[in-house]
């Protein structure tokens, strides 16, 4: 049973604890993230869900006070092994942030290809192909194909966020992490991002942190509910929202607290 679970798991998290100084943000969390599926992480503010997400590609290490215990394996590779550089982990596990952040000095194309270019890939043809491919995957190609060399910051907020997704996809990661990718967008742009997430799970493993419970219900296959740094419940999204086994989960998803 455990073996079959592991074979379809992109990320295996075992007994993960994360501390910032004396404060423990994530408490002994274990869960498997299924490959080519969307896993949503929900929970009230400060429950450690963003920290958990950032630990999956070692972004939490940007805080010099951060310390982790436990183990995370990406398709079997220990991403915290001594000889593994964070840079390599982050190439395999991409990330999209809450606030869209295309680089303001670069054009649309340059933004998409920046991860490749700054990692030494120069081929003009390859970069052009990857630009189109990534922008198509991010459902942005049709809107920007005529102005690829326009500045990225001339795009609208929703387009900028999809550009950031395209930028993350261009380096061909195995897993895509999304930290509240639609929370700064209007409903129309939000629904476009959600459609995109559903599209992308054909090729990618996606982990999304969200405050929006409807979004989790609409877009994800499994849902993890975090509360005060602990993983309260993890299971198929339908089950978490329809018949959760924990009282706290039910209270949260029905809006009784949070």
């Amino acid at each position: 049973m455990a073996d079959t679970q592991n074979s379809s798991a992109a990320l295996t998290v075992k007994n993960l604890s994360i501390f910032f100084g004396k404060n423990q943000a994530v408490k002994n969390v274990s869960l498997d993230i299924t490959a080519r599926a969307v896993t949503a992480i929900i929970g009230p503010s400060g429950c450690g869900k963003s920290t958990f997400l950032r630990a999956l590609n070692r972004m939490h290490e940007l805080n010099p006070e951060a310390r982790m215990e436990g183990e995370i394996r990406l398709f079997g590779d220990d991403i915290y092994a001594h000889d593994v550089q964070p840079v390599i982990v982050r190439r395999r596990v991409g990330m999209v942030f809450q606030k869209s952040n295309p680089f303001p000095t670069m054009s649309i194309t340059e933004n998409v290809t920046v991860g490749l270019r700054l990692n030494g890939i120069r081929g003009r043809k390859l970069l052009a192909e990857r630009t189109e491919q990534s922008l198509r995957m991010a459902a942005l190609w049709d809107e920007v194909k005529d102005r690829l060399h326009a500045p990225a910051i001339s795009l609208s907020g929703g387009q900028q966020q999809r550009l950031c997704i395209a930028r993350a996809l261009a380096v061909e990661p195995e897993v895509l992490l999304m930290d509240e990718p639609a929370s700064a967008l209007d409903p129309l742009a939000t629904s476009k991002i959600e459609d995109l997430i559903v599209q992308l799970k054909k090729d990618y493993t996606i982990v999304i942190v969200t405050h929006n419970m409807q979004q989790a219900a609409r877009a994800s296959d499994s849902t993890a509910f975090f509360y005060l740094g602990e993983l309260v419940e993890f299971g198929p999204t339908t089950k978490i929202f329809a018949s959760p086994s924990q009282k706290r989960t039910e209270d949260y998803v029905t809006g009784r607290f949070g």
Partner: peptide
Amino acid sequence: PGGYREASLALGISKWRTIVQI
């Protein structure tokens, strides 16, 4: 903004290149 540094590092770009290029 710190978001640019994070975005660059999350693309697997090294810290030095992030500093110089971004």
